[in-house]
Design a protein around this nucleic acid. Structure first.
Lengths: 222, 222
DNA sequence: GCAACGTCTTTCGTATACAGTAAACGCGAC
DNA sequence: GTCGCGTTTACTGTATACGAAAGACGTTGC
C-alpha cells in the first residue's frame, strides 16, 4: 500500500469533528463564548447536537491552537489573552511573515501574482464601499495566499492558527486599520512581483510592525 | 484491563492519550513504524493495549505535528519527508531560532545563563565520553531551554514539534555533527549572557545554517 | 462561630457498541 | 484473458456506557 492519493468526492467527507471545530472557533472569535468562560464537554455536545467524542477532539485542536486552556479533570476554559501574550503573537507573526514574503518573492509565478492582485482589487472595492469587515477578511486572505505561495507547509499550518488568534484578539481594531494596511499590502505584492526578496521582507516587517503598534494601542484603550 | 487504578496520588494524572502520544512518537522516530506505513487505529490500540479513543486523540496531535498524514475515511500513514519538506523545516527553524536567541539575549537572568552553561558542561563531558546520542539529546535540550528563556509561549509550543521532526529525520547525522555544534552553542550562550541581541541572532542563524547544510548533505548520501 | 470531615455531584477519561463507507476480492460475461 | 459488477470485509466516524477523581456542600464536633 504505497502512497496513493485519493480525490474522489468521498474524500471531502466533513467529519463532525471538523464541523464542531469550525463552529467552536467561530463562537469564540465572535465572543459568544467570552474569555474565561468554562466549556464542559457535555454542554458543548448539547450545544452542537453531537456526542462528546467530536467535541473532545475539537477541543484538543483548540487547545493546541491556544484558544482554550484545559485543566485535566476540571474542564476547558476560553483563554484570556494578556498584553505579553499579544506581544509574543506579533513577534511570531513578524518572523513568519518575513520568511513568507522572502520565499514568495523567490517562488511566485505570474499566476500567483495575478491572484494576489485580484485580492488587492477586491480589497480596494470593499474599501470604497466602506465594507470594513470585508476588507479585514480580504486582508487575512491575502496573507494566507502569500504564505501559500511561499510553499512552506509548516508555515501554512502554523500561520492558520496564528491568524485566527489575531482575528480573535483584534477583530474590531483590525477592521478599522484595514484601509491603511491596504497600501502596505500593495508594496508587498509589488516586491513579490519584482522578485525582490529584501524589499518583500522589509515590506512585510514594517507592515507587521504597524499592525502591532495599532493593535497594542487598542489594548490600551480596552 | 480497565482495572488500573491511579498509582500516583491525585496531582498529575498522566492521561493514556499522552502516554500513547509519547510511545507513538518514539516508535516513529526510532523507525519501528517506517515512513509510508499504514497505521490503523485498531492495530495501534492493540499494540499499546488500550482502546481506540486514546489512539485517535494521539493521532490527531501527531497529524498536527506533521508525523502522520490522515486520509479522511482511509486511515493514518506515517509521513514520508522529502527534500523540499526538509528544506522548509530548516527555514522555519532558522526564523524561530533567531527570534528565540534575540529574545533570550534580552530577557535572560543570571540563573538562566547558569542553566545554559551547565548544559554546555554536560555536553562537553558527554563529548569526551564520545556518547554522541547523549550529546544530541543535550543539544536539543539546550535549544528548548533557550526558547523557554525567550518566554514566548507560541515559540515554545511550535518549536517542540519542530525539534521532534528534526530529530526524526536526522537522528543519525545529528549525533555525528553534535561535537561541532557544541562550539557554536558556546558562541550563542556567550551572546545571550552578554545581552547582545544582534550577536545572539547571528550565532543562531549561522548555527542553523551549518546544521541545515550538514543535514541536507546526509540526504544526498541517503 | 469555625474548622474538619464525609458525602455528593459534576466532569473527565476510557472502553465498548453500532453504523456507514470505501476498498478488496471473487465471480461471471464477453 | 480481461473487463465489469456484486458481495464482502475492514476500517473509520460517531454514539453510548461506565468508572474514577476532584471540587462543592452540608454536617458535625469543638
Amino acid at each position: 500500500m504505497a502512497g496513493h492519493t485519493r480525490d474522489t468526492i468521498g474524500g471531502q467527507h466533513q467529519a463532525l469533528r471538523d464541523q464542531v471545530l469550525v463552529a467552536l472557533r467561530q463562537r469564540i472569535v465572535n465572543g459568544d463564548y467570552p474569555p474565561g468562560e468554562r466549556l464542559t464537554e457535555d454542554r458543548l455536545a448539547e450545544d452542537f447536537g453531537v456526542s462528546r467524542n467530536p467535541v473532545r477532539e475539537a477541543l484538543l485542536v483548540m487547545q493546541a491552537e491556544g484558544f482554550v486552556n484545559v485543566v485535566p479533570r476540571h474542564g476547558a476554559f476560553v483563554a484570556l489573552p494578556d498584553a505579553s501574550t499579544i506581544g509574543d503573537l506579533f513577534s511570531m507573526r513578524e518572523q513568519l511573515e518575513t520568511l513568507a514574503a522572502r520565499l514568495a518573492a523567490e517562488r511566485a509565478t505570474v499566476a500567483d501574482v495575478a491572484d494576489l492582485r485580484s485580492l488587492l482589487d477586491a480589497a480596494r472595492e470593499a474599501t470604497e464601499r466602506v465594507d470594513l469587515s470585508r476588507v479585514a477578511e480580504l486582508n487575512s486572505e491575502l496573507h494566507m495566499r502569500v504564505i501559500a505561495v511561499s510553499g512552506n507547509k509548516w508555515l501554512a499550518s502554523i500561520a492558520t492558527s496564528l491568524y485566527l488568534q489575531v482575528q480573535w484578539v483584534f477583530r474590531i481594531g483590525a477592521a478599522h486599520r484595514a484601509p491603511h494596511s491596504w497600501i502596505e499590502h500593495i508594496r508587498l505584492v509589488d516586491a513579490i512581483e519584482a522578485g525582490d526578496r529584501d524589499e518583500a521582507e522589509k515590506a512585510a516587517r514594517s507592515h507587521v510592525h504597524a499592525a502591532s503598534t495599532a493593535a497594542l494601542g487598542n489594548v490600551e484603550q480596552g
